[in-house]
Design a protein around this nucleic acid. Sequence first.
DNA 1: GCCAACGTTGGC
DNA 2: GCCAACGTTGGC
Length: 151
Amino acid sequence: MKSEPDVYSIEDLARDGRGEWEGVRNYQARNFMRDEMRVGDLVLFYHSNAKPPGLAGLARVCREGYPDSTQFDPKSPYFDPKAEPAAPRWFRVDLEHVETFERLISLAELREERALEGMRLLQRGQRLSVQPVQERYFQHALQMAGAKTRL
DNA sequence: GCCAACGTTGGC
DNA sequence: GCCAACGTTGGC
């Protein structure tokens, strides 16, 4: 999952312990949160629009997809006037902090890694903020980060 | 700030 | 349903 650290960083998640992944307004990303993600799933936390961008840490799904209340809040930047409470359009999951990597694994470094060839995150024009990671790529990323957590 | 690569909107 | 115009993402 991608987040701009100026908006919400891995350090913010570490401080909060857990957080609501609100504000996703892309249907494909929504579908992953609503239909695919399960409690206990590990999540690579990616800092986008950062200097440098890259993998910052690990989180875990602690609540499965449910309606994102910000879509109904006119004061929220994520307000969607077309969303109906009876048929919510946007969903979020809750995440809990697992670990912050000792160093950020930059996008440039990920791109240099032969073992990550084919990883969706690295594909051209790829900009989904929520996307699945194949197990072998996930394992390799954990290894690069010297993560304490194992899959 | 630039711009490629999408995704969405809305006229027809 | 098509597609041009517009908006967004996000690396560089």
